[in-house]
Write a protein that binds this DNA or RNA. Structure first.
Lengths: 189, 189
DNA sequence: CGCTGTAGATATACGCCGTATATTAACCAC
DNA sequence: GTGGTTAATATACGGCGTATATCTACAGCG
């Protein structure tokens, strides 16, 4: 047995998924500031430079993190009434933001280009269509919806809403009310 | 003349305002990543350690930056109709975000505690009151307003809205429409 | 005027970061 | 086996935040 450790020199054993798993764990445990090439590599029992093959560079690592965040969102169930689907989506976003407060902010910095992001966008647009929103309003309204959901979740998770939990809930209730009536109004026209 | 340079060793010549001015300039010219203790110090012709007396540490520097961002918002004119005041505020936020895209994201990470932030919050609340929004709805609605404005501005300035300018404008129009009718609805009750 | 305490700056150094470059070791096809 | 390729390591560089120690110009006081 020449390779006592799990991975020898030229052995292919690492993978992009493994790297991102470790990164997400690290971010959850010790915050985004603790996410460094060296930190992730240590957690994998590997040299920092080994990561570059799989994520390109540090920015690529963060992009991968964002990608993962989106996949943590709950699946949409098109069978439900659109109101319930909207609420479920909101709750999902809120939970993801709570789990990864600082990482969540990265969502504001990247355009919707990855496959996962596209899928999430299409989900919301399908939801709006099934609510009866006319086609030309769907794209901008989807963007507005995204922004409000992400903005609220980011604010709460990062402590910008400093009051007690009940106050924060009121803001969410208000947003929900506002959005539901807006969608209904556009659907009626 | 023993002190050829403007600031000799023990001369008191630096100030917190001077430091933050230089920081904001640097951030605008070369982005947030270029904002480092060394970078700011260089721009002031000073040693990095000299900054610590005025801003505490790097986080304090960034907090000061956020504070400055808020003061860049346009002044509110209570004489105007509340609809116009709301639009002016939105345009102001949008412009600040455009000028300092990355710095703007820091707003999501800090609670509303500084004097400047409090003033901005009170402005929005006063606006809502003068629109006739009942007292118990004012605080949560103000938070929602803030979040939507900041979320849209942050998204646009950081490139999350990838489409052309007309598409982005449509989102803002939609938000404005949505908020105006919502405020009117709450004011009527 | 000289003395001294102190405030405001510098000098130096440490450990961490991202990553460019060069090297090495395991595997594959022939 | 042997050569080429792939996936890892080793090393090094410049920049970062900042702890610590030092220095120096001034203020207050006799």
């Amino acid at each position: 047995m020449k390779t006592p450790a799990r991975r020898g020199r030229g052995t292919r054993g690492l993978s992009r998924d493994e790297v991102l798993d470790a990164t997400l764990d690290l971010a959850e445990e010790r915050g985004l500031d603790a996410v460094s090439m060296r930190g992730v590599a240590d957690r994998l029992g590997v040299t920092p430079m080994a990561l570059y093959r799989y994520v390109g560079d540090k920015q690529g690592l963060l992009d991968g993190l964002v990608e993962r965040l989106i996949t943590e969102l709950p699946d949409d169930d098109p069978g439900l009434p659109w109101q319930d689907r909207l609420r479920a989506l909101g709750a999902g976003i809120r939970e993801v933001a709570r789990r990864h407060p600082q990482v969540f902010l990265l969502l504001f910095m990247r355009p919707t280009v990855t496959e996962e992001a596209r899928r999430a966008r299409d989900t919301v647009q399908a939801l709006l269509r099934s609510a009866g929103v006319p086609e030309d309003v769907v794209p901008p309204l989807q963007r507005l919806l995204d922004t409000i959901g992400m903005g609220l979740a980011a604010s709460e998770a990062n402590g910008r809403f400093s009051g007690d939990a009940a106050d924060v809930d009121r803001v969410y209730d208000l947003a929900e009310d506002l959005l539901l009536t807006a969608i209904e109004r556009y659907a009626r026209e």
